[in-house]
């Protein structure tokens, strides 16, 4: 009976660990094996390479890209971390060379203003539309004839 309880749990544990292994090997196996950093730098390294976009490949971060330039940029991130640079210094270094494109978390600037403003503008438009539709619905006035008909209908169909 005890076996019956334990066995499925063990099975699911194996399955879970297999899935975790699968995720690790596909997403960042390569980038992990190529660098050797102390744990606290490694954690920042993982965050930075996930937030930096590969300039060659349009929509993939440098952690997951195997383009030569992504490998080079990972090395730059690693070397600058070892040199004691802050995350924003490292991002600034790359932004100066590759533009805001390189950063998946772009700063607010005239070029990115639209990006940040569109959701807010859409939200305001939606709110205005709802209040407009709502106010029109409230304004419906029945004529005397209609009121009389409404009363008749109510009387015929008591709820």
């Amino acid at each position: 009976m005890l076996n019956g309880v334990i066995r499925p749990r063990r099975g699911s544990q194996i399955l879970t660990s297999m899935m975790v292994l699968l995720i690790c090997t596909t997403s960042s196996g390569e980038s992990k094996s190529e660098v050797d950093l102390p744990p606290e730098l490694m954690a920042r390294y993982e965050v930075l390479i996930a937030e930096l976009r590969c300039p060659k490949c349009l929509n993939i971060n440098i952690a997951d890209s195997n383009a030569p330039i992504a490998t080079d940029l990972r090395m730059i991130v690693k070397n600058q971390l070892q040199d004691g640079k802050t995350n924003s210094e490292i991002k600034g270094f790359l932004r100066e060379r590759y533009g805001d494109f390189i950063d998946y978390n772009p700063p607010l600037s005239p070029a990115t203003l639209v990006l940040w403003a569109v959701p807010i503008v859409l939200l305001i438009c939606a709110a205005l539309t709802f209040t407009y539709v709502g106010s029109r619905r409230d304004k419906v006035e029945l004529s005397d004839e209609e009121k009389a008909r409404l009363q008749r209908l109510k009387a015929q169909h008591p709820s």
Binding site: P55, K56, A67, P68, I69, D72, L73, I76, R97, Y98, G99
Partner: peptide, 12 residues
């Protein structure tokens, strides 16, 4: 090593 390339923003 491609270091100057990075300073020039070369990616291809």
């Amino acid at each position: 090593e491609g270091d100057f390339g990075v300073n020039l923003g070369v990616y291809g």
